[in-house]
Design a protein around this nucleic acid. Structure first.
Ligand SMILES: [Mn+2]
Ligand SMILES: [Mn+2]
Ligand SMILES: [Zn+2]
Ligand SMILES: [Zn+2]
Lengths: 140, 140
DNA sequence: ACTTATATGAGAATAATTCTTATTTAAGAA
DNA sequence: TTCTTAAATAAGAATTATTCTCATATAAGT
């Protein structure tokens, strides 16, 4: 993801391009494993030590509203963020904080067809995300 | 769910039976829509005004550890709890806080078979929960 | 360059949860 | 039925995650 591409994501949504917004998007794309706000703040402060905590939360909210990033829910108190906007699911390791992306078009089609048939009465489905919970096998 | 049944759930796990634990389980079973800790506290305080907030959080943690209840993740800051331990999925209304249970054995079998075939290398799946996001149609 | 609506920084405030410690109590043993 | 004691609770302080307020700074259009 180049600087220009990041800039375009902002302008495409009619958002002002600020160094803070650029830095936050860049952080999300570079930090793997679905960073928390705190992860993002730590990362950005290396290059840009004056960024305000409140600004990061504000910007994250704006980016979510504008569908440039997504929230990832967990059983921990801190929200996590995801810069991958293509449809995908999440593999949660119960022993660590690791959340791996899981892409599977075949599964997505299967689910889409399944819920076309068995549509939920009175509910318009916008998105289906699998939370796949378990543990990674330790390798000796 | 009778008082005796609730009591047995605790003793079956080797947990001491306390009025607080009984009240918290009863609250979760009676409150619908996946209550927050605050919902549970408000409910219990009607009958039992001296219960301490910290006790409720402590007990909720114990009940989760002992698999008598589950956490339900959301994009909001407050954790929500679920007393329904049978396998099921969640329908999230994007416009309200409503989280509806969705039971579907056919779907569960479909998923189980799917992931038997396409097993995730190095990962032991313990549970798969669908987060079905969308909106309930308003009826006029 | 000028203007202005919007974004940011700083720090206070709030909300959700956890921690600490003295006291109480459930449940098994005597 | 007491007695014992490890575990649970109440109360309130502390911590963590997030939001809010408001004065200043700045992006972007004119
Ligand atoms: Mn959450
Ligand atoms: Mn919180
Ligand atoms: Zn992801
Ligand atoms: Zn449920």
């Amino acid at each position: 993801m180049t600087t220009e591409e990041i800039r375009n994501k902002l302008t495409d949504r009619g958002l002002k391009v600020t160094p803070q917004r650029m830095a936050i998007l860049e952080a999300i794309y570079n930090l793997k494993n679905h960073p928390t706000a705190e992860n993002i703040i730590d990362y950005i402060k290396k290059m840009y030590p004056n960024i305000a905590t409140g600004t990061v939360y504000k910007v994250l909210g704006v980016l979510v509203e504008n569908r440039l990033i997504k929230k990832v829910t967990t059983e921990k108190d801190a929200m996590r963020y995801d810069g991958v906007m293509e449809s995908h699911h999440h593999i949660y390791c119960q022993e660590t904080e690791l959340i791996k992306d899981y892409f599977d078009e075949e599964l997505d089609e299967l689910l889409q067809k399944y819920f076309e048939k068995k549509s939920l009465p009175g509910f318009k489905i916008e998105d289906i995300i699998l939370q796949i919970k378990g543990t990674f096998q330790k390798q000796y």
